[in-house]
Design a protein around this nucleic acid. Structure first.
Lengths: 361, 361
DNA sequence: GTCTTTCCCCCAAACGTTCGCGCGGCCTCC
DNA sequence: GGAGGCCGCGCGAACGTTTGGGGGAAAGAC
């Protein structure tokens, strides 16, 4: 949709032509890209006519047989349009920028894969950049400079000045996985309320009544949302709210938070972690305290990243389809650049992957 | 090095100017990018002079005070150069393309992170694309079309026509993690001989003499290299060579191959897997056969991806520093585009992360 | 037969940079 | 005091594409 791709040229990057016939040494010229005017010459039309013939949208204004001649010439010469020149003229680049907080986090691989899988078939390339908090503005700026057609951000904080600034600019943006509260901007995120509710309901069904929560960072919508969802669920059931903050979505903070939780309230029989790694931290603490995960204490994770089913015991976790999340974000962006009204907020329903860490085998 | 970055402008993408003073409604014009000629006008110099003043390399030919005036004007207006226009003129794009076989594979996150961390500070952006075998040529072609300054490929097979074609073209390339045999092209890969040797030596020290190998795909240099390294090691020790092929670097193939291995030779006490996931497959089979990993049978993985230390028992694995590998590949590429002689083959020494899957606690 | 319409196609101006070339002025040197 | 050299800067073309406008020829209406 973004671009009309119909060039068949498959010569990879080098147009090897022999010049100097016979007398001198055979010179192989490299990198002599064939340009639109070459095609025009070969088809014996003006360059502008060639352009119109190649571009599906304007093709209607040129006589069919001329179109054929141009297309044939383009195919023959292996013509490939120059994206920079086109972008300069049209001020579009057929590319989108993606900003990821941490590429090593297993969560973002699938998101990017989903984005990729949706955008590349549209002839749109994907610029990926990692950005810590302090980088974020600079990184986003450099993407905007490159005239990306849109921006997908996975770095949003609940209040995020950079996102606010970007949302006022003309470049369409979509948030993914995390959302921002201070301003209304399109976002594709998981439904944390439903997810946490799935975990809690599951635990309640198993008979648990004293359920703790290892929370994630409160400046992120995911951490905050899951915490409030947990509190709401406890309230609905009439159970006590028992929360400890993990200072980051990592194993060590989960270990610490769980320790504090269990020291404060030893009667806890189940822990809902805001994230898989926090949950694995809970595993460690439980073991260190001599409690067997799955039988003595139930633990649930959140996200269900790869290899969780290979843990011992395999971990029950709220499953989020990140690949689909990425794809939806990409589609949302495509809709925006296409001028279509894009949904402002899309909630992805999670499911629950029940494993031995709650059922005890 | 690639680009001389010195523009301070921090206005994110929108130049909001008020036009119409007082009478009409205040119109906020958006997206009116400030261009080089604006800067030139403000500094009262010709656009070419402004260009020279901004570009560190040509700055020497313009009078210092003029440079200051231009720089001040640029800062004042928040000028940001147009990469597309620049790229069109200079036929460079300050960007490199990265082709990854599978973004969901936890191995490639760190590689990309390493690449990213090295290139972005150089003012060079990173275009990431995923490519299956059949895609590879098309994907690489589209990157070349975009005039990337270089290409980093993680998709190489031992004999790979696409890589061969690309190596003849003018775009510099670097292979990462996997290498190609049919042609000499710069590559940054792990030293599989050393890695496998580390694992085998470790097992021999523990007293094992009947050691099997679950091999990876033989069309990949990693699968093939580790297999031959294993064979060599067995030969050196005078042990029997016991290999079964895993048809892919995944859990299920590892499960099957290990089953075949143990059925064929039940006396095996240790399994060297060509990959972590294959090793986890071996875990499963071992358990299914009633053998306790770490005590009844030792298993080693290869790569040491994240969360391996959280398995039960934690898995001993050859550790490859993929982040560094990515960084080295990026540096190699930078050297190439800088015209410097880049090392043709760089071997990264792996280490061994010893855990309970071999030591039994 | 002329005028209008329709249909193709060419012309040329952009888009925002970079860079070779050439020109004027100041300094230096004899 | 005049000639040459150098320094600083302006001029304009080019990179490859898109796109509005204009023009010529064939076709249709009267």
């Amino acid at each position: 949709m973004l671009c009309n791709r119909l060039y068949w040229g498959s010569i990879v990057g080098v147009q090897a032509e022999e010049t100097g016939q016979g007398n001198g040494p055979t010179v192989v010229r490299m990198g002599d890209r064939v340009t639109l005017s070459d095609v025009a010459d070969a088809a014996e039309v003006h360059v502008s006519t060639a352009s119109r013939a190649l571009n599906a949208s304007s093709r209607s204004v040129v006589r069919p047989e001329t179109v054929d001649r141009v297309l044939a010439a383009a195919a023959e010469l292996g013509y490939r349009p120059h994206p920079l020149a086109r972008g300069l003229r049209t001020s579009r680049s057929d590319s989108v920028g993606v900003v990821i907080p941490d590429l090593e986090n297993p969560l973002f691989g699938p998101i990017v894969a989903g984005i990729e899988r949706t955008l590349v078939p549209e002839g749109c390339s994907v610029l990926i950049t990692a950005a810590a908090h302090h980088d974020e503005e600079e990184v986003a700026q450099s993407l905007v400079d490159r005239r990306v057609d849109g921006l997908i951000l996975a770095t949003a904080q609940r209040v995020d000045p950079v996102v606010e600034a970007l949302s006022k600019a003309s470049t369409p943006i979509v948030l993914v996985n995390r959302q921002v509260e201070s301003v209304d901007v399109p976002a594709v995120v998981g439904d944390d309320r439903i997810g946490i509710r799935l975990a809690v309901d599951h635990l309640v069904e198993l008979g648990h009544t004293t359920i703790g929560h290892v929370a994630g960072p409160s400046e992120l919508s995911t951490g905050y949302g899951r915490r409030t969802a947990y509190e709401q669920a406890m309230h609905d059931y009439g159970f006590r709210v028992l929360v400890e903050d993990g200072l980051g979505f990592r194993v060590a903070p989960g270990e610490d938070a769980t320790r504090r939780l269990l020291e404060r309230e030893p009667s806890i029989t189940a822990v809902v972690a805001a994230n898989d790694l926090l949950g694995l931290g809970a595993y460690r603490t439980a073991r260190a305290l001599g409690r067997r995960v799955g039988s003595d204490i139930a633990i649930t994770g959140y996200n269900d990243v790869a290899m969780l089913d290979l843990m011992e015991p395999p971990m029950t976790a709220v499953h989020v389809n990140f690949r689909r999340m990425g794809a939806m974000a990409a589609e949302n962006l495509l809709a925006q650049v296409g001028g279509a009204p894009a949904p402002s907020k899309e909630l992805l329903k999670p499911t629950l992957s029940v494993r031995a860490s709650t059922t005890g085998d």
